[in-house]
Design a protein around this nucleic acid. Structure first.
Lengths: 108, 108
DNA sequence: TAGGTTCTTAACCCACTCGTTAATTAACGG
DNA sequence: CCGTTAATTAACGAGTGGGTTAAGAACCTA
């Protein structure tokens, strides 16, 4: 489980972490701000942030005693890029494109 | 970790399982066929398939003593749908669209 | 019925995850 | 310097994940 994609997907496989990302989509936030909606301890949040940071999904900066987190979407791009290989299996437009390509390939 | 998206992402967070999906993109396959490229036991593969099935990423059928697995891409559609909420954070076209929408909103 | 093939289930290990509380670090303000 | 605020680190427990081997279930063929 050392590869990048696995780390990214594992980070996304937790509802608390996804909620944190959703919050960060609205702008940067400190740890206590991020912790506020949840019924879990600060250390737990701190660890979730560590996981997100390791996955590259957030970056962090500090000013005085506050540590601010910021959304970094690049890993999400990677994840969707991987899933795009399967798009033809669910996307109607892709299915049609597929069929079209096969058709024009049959009559040269 | 009981929600659907978490189960899907967790299923994708393992390289063996992603490789199995890649293989299934080329067509149905039996358990031994799927196990062949890997250096792990058949029971281990069997469990990976269970995880994928629980996530809805594969469906299974049987004929005689063979159990055939088939790719089901619907969960991938769900996962990308979730990530699409963040597309504007990495997609240049989305960034431009965002800017455009803001512009036309400013001058009514 | 017996024996072979395919696959799953059971039982077990070890490592890791997610939560806890308590202690520690770091920076601010009087 | 002292106390407060913000956040992390440490130490622990319960549960889960991914692997193993051994045993069982389901189906075919002779």
């Amino acid at each position: 489980m050392t590869d990048r994609l696995s780390v990214i997907f594992a980070a996304l496989a937790d509802p608390t972490r996804r909620a944190i990302l959703a919050r960060l989509a609205e702008g940067e936030a400190t740890v206590t701000e991020l912790a506020e909606p949840f019924d879990i301890s600060l250390p737990a949040i701190s660890r979730h942030l560590k996981v997100l940071e390791t996955a590259g999904l957030i970056s962090r900066s500090r000013s005085a005693q506050w540590r601010s987190s910021r959304l970094e979407a690049e890993p999400l791009r990677e994840a969707t890029a991987w899933m795009d290989r399967y798009r033809r299996f669910w996307d109607e437009n892709f299915t049609r494109l597929d069929a079209h390509l096969k058709r024009i390939q049959e009559k040269p």
